[in-house]
Design a protein around this nucleic acid. Sequence first.
DNA 1: CGTCACATGGCAAGCGTTTGCCATTCTTTG
DNA 2: CAAAGAATGGCAAACGCTTGCCATGTGACG
Lengths: 333, 333
Amino acid sequence: MVPGPARRRPTLTDVATAAGVAASTVSRAFTNPARVNAHTREHVLSVAARLGYAPNPAARALESGRTRTLALLVPDITNPYFAGVIKGAERAAAAAGLTLVLGDTQESASVEEQLVRRLGPSVDGLVLAASRLPDDGLRRAAEENAIVLLNRATTGVDCVVADFDSGTRQIVDHLASHGHESFVFLGGPAGSWSGARRWRGLQGSAAERGLDATRFGPYTPTLEGGPAAADAALAAGATALVCHNDMLAIGVLRRLAQRGVAVPERVSVVGFDDIFGADFCSPPLTTLAEHTRDAGARAVEVLVQQSRTTETASWVLPTQLVIRASTGPAPGR
Amino acid sequence: MVPGPARRRPTLTDVATAAGVAASTVSRAFTNPARVNAHTREHVLSVAARLGYAPNPAARALESGRTRTLALLVPDITNPYFAGVIKGAERAAAAAGLTLVLGDTQESASVEEQLVRRLGPSVDGLVLAASRLPDDGLRRAAEENAIVLLNRATTGVDCVVADFDSGTRQIVDHLASHGHESFVFLGGPAGSWSGARRWRGLQGSAAERGLDATRFGPYTPTLEGGPAAADAALAAGATALVCHNDMLAIGVLRRLAQRGVAVPERVSVVGFDDIFGADFCSPPLTTLAEHTRDAGARAVEVLVQQSRTTETASWVLPTQLVIRASTGPAPGR
DNA sequence: CGTCACATGGCAAGCGTTTGCCATTCTTTG
DNA sequence: CAAAGAATGGCAAACGCTTGCCATGTGACG
C-alpha cells in the first residue's frame, strides 16, 4: 500500500460510463432527483457508491460561482474569547453544509485587509469578528463580498453585536448596589470599537446612577497589560475597576494579589467576556458574559440569509453579568 | 450603493480583451513570467490591476487538481489546548500561501470520519489533531488524502507527536526529587492515544525510579471531571496526583480547595499541556508543556512536504515541565 | 386511432484557467 | 546571406460539472 498522493478520484463521467448513462443523468441523479426516473436514479447512485464517487467541489464552484464556503476572520485565534465564536460559527456552518475557513488577522488591519482580499474570491461570504478595518474599508469590502460584522458596526454592513448598553448598566447597577460611588475604566486599545461602546455605556449608566466614572489607558488587553493598569488605578485610589476585558482583568487581579491588595475587600474588579478561566482565577471574576457561541452561529446564519434580502440590519445579542467573588461592598461600607 | 451580492468579478478573458492579447498570454503573465515579453507582461499586469482582476481559485483548482487549501480537524475548538495548534497551523498555512479550513469533530470518531469525507475532496491535505479514528480508519483516510497526524500515531501515516517519554520522565523525576514515593495517575478517556502514551511513560519512569504508580479513571478530561477524580485520589490516600490534562487538573485543584486540602502541602498536582489558565489558577499548576503552536505549524509543514517523498515518518517535538506552585515536598518530609 | 402533453434521457455549450503545440518574428551563427 | 534557433504570442483542448434545449417514448384524451 503506497501512502502516496492518493489515487485518482472517480469523476462524474466515470460513473456515467460505468452506469451506462449520460453524464447529465448522473449529475441530475444527484442534484435534481425529480428530473430522472426513480429506477435510473437508484442505479446511478449505487454505481456511484460502488466507485466511491464524490462530486468535485471545485468544478461545482466554477459552474455555479458559489463555493459553499465561508470565512471567519478573528484578530487572535488563541484569545479564548474567540474560541466560542469559532465554535459557534463552525457548528452553524457545518449545519448548513458549508465549510468554514479560518483566518487570524493578528490584530492588524493590514493583515485583515490582505486576508479579505485573498480569501474573498474563494468564499461565499465572510464574518469579520472585532474587525480592525476602518469604516470605509469595511464598506469597500462589503461591495466585493457578502460580509457580516461581529461586535463591530458601521452603516451599510450587516452586523451582530452584544448588547453593551444593557450590559454596562448591569455592571454599574451591581457596583452601585454595593455602595461604590465611583469606578475606573481600564481601557483597551484606542481604536477598539467595542472598547468605545463599553466606555460609552458605562459612562451613560454611571451618569444615570450618579457614579463617578474615569477612564484610564489605553492598556494592552492581555494578562501582561494588567500590572500597569492595576498600578495606575491603585495610584489614583480607585476602589472599583472595570477592565476592558477579562484578560486584562485577570492580569490586574494577579498584580493586585502580588501587591497584597485584597479583592474584593479593598477593590472590586469587573471584566468583560467571561472567558475560559474567569471562573477559576483567584478570586473568580465578576464579568459580563456574552454568548459567544451564539454570536458566532448567528453571524453565519445572517450571512447565509443575506443573499435573500437587500437592506442591511443589525442584530443585538443579550449579555449577562456573571457575579463572582471579585466584586463586593465598597470599602468602609 | 447596493450592498447586494457583489458585482461580477472580471475574468482572465476580460483582462485579455481589455489588453488586446490572448487569454493564454494573460495567464502566463501571472504564472509564468519567463514565458512572455517583459513589456507585454507589464502592460497586462497594469490592465489587470486597473480592472481589479483576481484569478478565480475554483477554476485554478479545477485545472490543477490542487486547491491550495488544507484542513485541520480538532476534537474541540474551544479546548484551549488546541488554540495553539490552530494558531500555529494557520500561520504556517498562511506563510505557505495556503488556506486553512477548520473542522470540529466534537470528540466523535463518526463526526471526524464524516468531516474527512466531506472535506477530503476539496483540500490538498488534512491535519488530524488527536484523532479519534481507529487505526485502520486512519490508514484508509490516508489512501484517499494526504494526511498528517498530530499527537496520534499509526504505521503508514505521517505524524508529529510530543515527546511523552522525556516528558513523563521529567514529571517523575520532579516528584521523586520532592521525596514522593508514589503517585496516582488520574486517567482520561479510555480510548485516548495520548492518554495511553502518558500512562505508559509514567509507568516506565516510575519503575526506573522506584516509585509506585497507580492509574485511576477514566475521568472526563474537563473541569467537571475534577471532583470525582479528586475524591477518588483522596480516598486512596494519594499524595501526588498526575492528571490526564490541565483541564482535569484544574478541576481537581478546585475540588481540593473546596474540600480544604492544602496544595501542595498535602497533595501535589501535576497536569499535562500547560494550557491558558494553568499559570493563574490557584495554586498555579505544575504541568508538562508542549509547544502546541510549533506542533500545529510543524504538522502543516510536514503536510506540505509530504508530496515530495513517499515513505512516512514521525516527528517528535520536545516537551518541558513547567514547575509552578501546585507541587512540593511529599507530606512529612 | 391520431394528437398532445409529459416524462425521461442525451447532447453540447459553457464556467475560468492552464498548457501543449504551432506560427510567426527576431537573433544568431557559420 | 542563408539557415537554424530562440523568443513570443495565439489556438484550442482539457479540467469536472451543470443546465438549456432537443429527441424520443409513453400514456391520456377526445
